[in-house]
Design a protein around this nucleic acid. Structure first.
Length: 288
DNA sequence: GGGCCCGCAGGG
DNA sequence: CCCTGCGGGCCC
């Protein structure tokens, strides 16, 4: 029942089997890959290589949700939904709470007695979406980033001062909305005079207006959206969040659904319909 | 607090 | 390859 780091457990620590992981409290399940509750968030996940759709890049992990899987063959035989453990990971994303990540190691040679699992520290659920998996069914997917990588993005000089329960959400926001907010981000905001393309709102702060540059198709793996104007919107914070989390999608006619309002356009800013169509594809089942 | 469902085991 | 199975989450 503990979220975050555990006393007496060090990063990189090995565990012989799932029973030892269970007893240590690192991952309190003998079989399931996700431990956590829908309304509280996830505690821990195990990356075992059992899912064909998983991608492990070290500090970035693309994790496939649970469910719809044939126990024996290991193949997806039904669609997944954002429920159970998948809902727990969504909650971790929305709340910004860290998740313990355990990797199953490929044991070299015949050393059966050695540790088969390794605790690899805390990860943040940066985003979630769904897509058609390699086996042809809808799967839930999660982009997890090593918390140390986050601190690297931020250039933080005191990683240990980060309080996960209170500041992680803000950390995530900074990564998505400020660090990537370069000259291009300023450009798109100037083109729209800091007016939200969804609601037309313009936030007047002391010192000037505030808006956010939002990528339609996310940049970085696995989405690999382009970091250019044709993939950027000028949005207020609320509609930025709703777009990123799939509550808003943009259809072929530039209507924002389910609001049924037209995306506000200006002549000098052309969008690429391929990007809105990609965004649609990863959220089509959730937005109706 | 009991019953039910389900899962990124593990071993034979 | 098959099957037994432990225990968490969740809904009564």
């Amino acid at each position: 029942m503990a979220i975050g780091a555990l006393q007496g457990v060090s990063q990189g620590q090995g565990f012989v089997d799932r029973r030892e992981l269970y007893d240590s409290g690192v991952h309190r399940a003998l079989q399931a890959g996700i431990v956590g509750r829908g309304k509280v968030g996830a505690e821990s996940i195990v990356l075992s290589g059992g899912y064909v759709d998983d991608e492990d890049y070290g500090s970035v992990v693309i994790y496939t949700g649970e469910g719809g899987r044939d126990q024996n063959s290991g193949r997806q035989i039904a669609n997944q939904s954002f429920s159970r453990g998948n809902q727990a990971l969504v909650t971790s994303c929305l709340e910004g709470t860290p998740v313990r990540l355990v990797r199953k190691m490929n044991v070299e040679g015949n050393d059966v007695s050695g540790p088969k699992y390794r605790y690899d520290g805390l990860f943040h659920v940066e985003s979630y979406w769904q897509e058609t998996g390699l086996d042809g069914h809808q799967v839930c997917r999660f982009r997890l980033v090593d918390e140390r990588a986050y601190q690297g993005y931020l250039g933080s000089n005191s990683p240990t001062e980060l309080n996960h329960s209170t500041s992680a959400r803000r950390v995530e926001s900074v990564v998505q909305r400020v660090v990537r907010d370069t000259a291009l981000g300023r450009r798109v905001k100037e083109l729209h005079d800091y007016t939200c393309q969804v609601c037309g709102g313009r936030l007047h702060c002391v010192g000037g207006p505030y808006a956010e540059a939002a990528h339609i198709r996310p940049v970085g793996r696995p989405h690999n959206g382009p970091d250019d104007l044709s993939n950027l919107l000028c949005l207020c914070p609320n509609h930025h969040v709703l777009l990123d989390r799939g509550a808003l999608v943009i259809d072929q006619n530039w209507n924002v659904q389910p609001l049924a309002t037209k995306l506000r356009m200006v002549d000098r800013h052309k969008l690429d319909p391929a990007q809105t169509s990609y965004h649609w594809s990863i959220w089509r089942n959730e937005s109706d």
